[in-house]
Each structure stands twice: as structure tokens, then as C-alpha cells.
């Protein structure tokens, strides 16, 4: 099954700043892999439920108990950029 990927859109969704040449290369490679992967569509799966977890289990809960937090300095020491007690990022264009 031929696959046609809007690679620029996919790269934007994935927050990957790729140039045109890179996009074209990835498009070709992804299409080869996806054409192979698309073979799954040949298998009839009517009425077959999907598997998200290899071992079925339910209700893994924790008690509502407060546990120790990390030391702020240890956390912020890994930040690429900080301002005082905050992580600093460049301006945000859109609301979430």
C-alpha cells in the first residue's frame, strides 16, 4: 500500500525544525518503513480488541500520601536557563 506523508506537517507536530532536504530524506525513509508496516492492514482483525498492555492488570493505585519532593537547587541546576527560582523560556506565542 503506497503511503503519502505530509512530512512537513508531521515535523511541525513533533517540534522538529528540519530543512527541506532533511524533510525529503525522512519522507522517503518513513514511506519505505510505513509501506512495510502497512502490511498489518492485510490481517483481518474484525472483532479483535486492541492490546495496550502485554499483561492485563487493573487498579494499580497509590495511597494519597505526601512524599518527599526534590531539592529545588538540584532540579534547577539542570535547567538550560533559569531566572531565580524559575525555569526561563523564550516568549510563548500561543495560549495552550
Amino acid at each position: 500500500m503506497p503511503v503519502d506523508i505530509d512530512i512537513a506537517k508531521v515535523a511541525r507536530l513533533a517540534r522538529l525544525a528540519l530543512d527541506d532536504e532533511e524533510l525529503e530524506r525522512y519522507r522517503q525513509q518513513c514511506e519505505v518503513v510505513l509501506e512495510h508496516a502497512a502490511r498489518v492492514q492485510a490481517l483481518p482483525t474484525d472483532g479483535v480488541p486492541p492490546t495496550s498492555h502485554p499483561l492485563p492488570r487493573t487498579n494499580a493505585f497509590r495511597d494519597d500520601v505526601v512524599t518527599e519532593c526534590l531539592d529545588r537547587e538540584e532540579v534547577l541546576s539542570q535547567a538550560p536557563e533559569r531566572d531565580g527560582d524559575y525555569f526561563l523560556v523564550p516568549r510563548i506565542l500561543d495560549e495552550a
Binding site: A37, A38, V40, V48, P49, P50, T51, S52
Partner: peptide, 12 residues
């Protein structure tokens, strides 16, 4: 067609 189908194949 892709992820959902792959998960069903996983069941098989």
C-alpha cells in the same frame, strides 16, 4: 489504519 490495527495484530 496504523496504530489501532497494530494493537489488534498484537492481540493476535
Amino acid at each position: 489504519a496504523f496504530y489501532g490495527q497494530a494493537q489488534r495484530v498484537r492481540t493476535l
